[in-house]
Amino acid sequence: MSFVFWLLAAITVAGGLAAVLLKNLVHCALALTVVFAGLALLFLQLDAQFAGFAQILVYVGAVAILVVFAILLTRSSETPKDGGVFSRTWGAGLAISAAVFAVLGWVVLQSEAGLPREINVPNVTVLQIGNALMGRYVLPLEIVALLLTAALIGAVIVAMHEKGDAK
């Protein structure tokens, strides 16, 4: 538990708040990128190099760009004419999320004595991760490959122009 951790945690949480609270959606997407990068650095801080770089590649490289494209294609960066960016039932949503955080934080603090405290730094190489993916986890890997193919085709079909939908 070091200064670096608290710095990264502060950046990540501040980015999360900005991503949810800002009015302009392009600014929200930029704040979301900050959150993804902060989480990748937290993964590196946890000695999970592969997951950290996968996080940067997938989230900062692909998902953030996808979100920016969606915002620009739907012209959502313009503020709605009738004012607020929050829905009519924002009070209930805020209460629910505050209650969820209260319960989660209470549970974590209550179970603190029983939490594991391994101090040895894990020495895991990418070779071991590759062997695990190709050995013990090969069936989930194939299913994920199928899922990604289906998602690719499905996203294209869903967003494709329909016939007679001339613009």
Partner: peptide, 10 residues
């Protein structure tokens, strides 16, 4: 909790 608040209130 922040993500949940964003999903529920925006």
């Amino acid at each position: 909790a922040i993500g949940l608040a964003g999903a529920l209130t925006r």
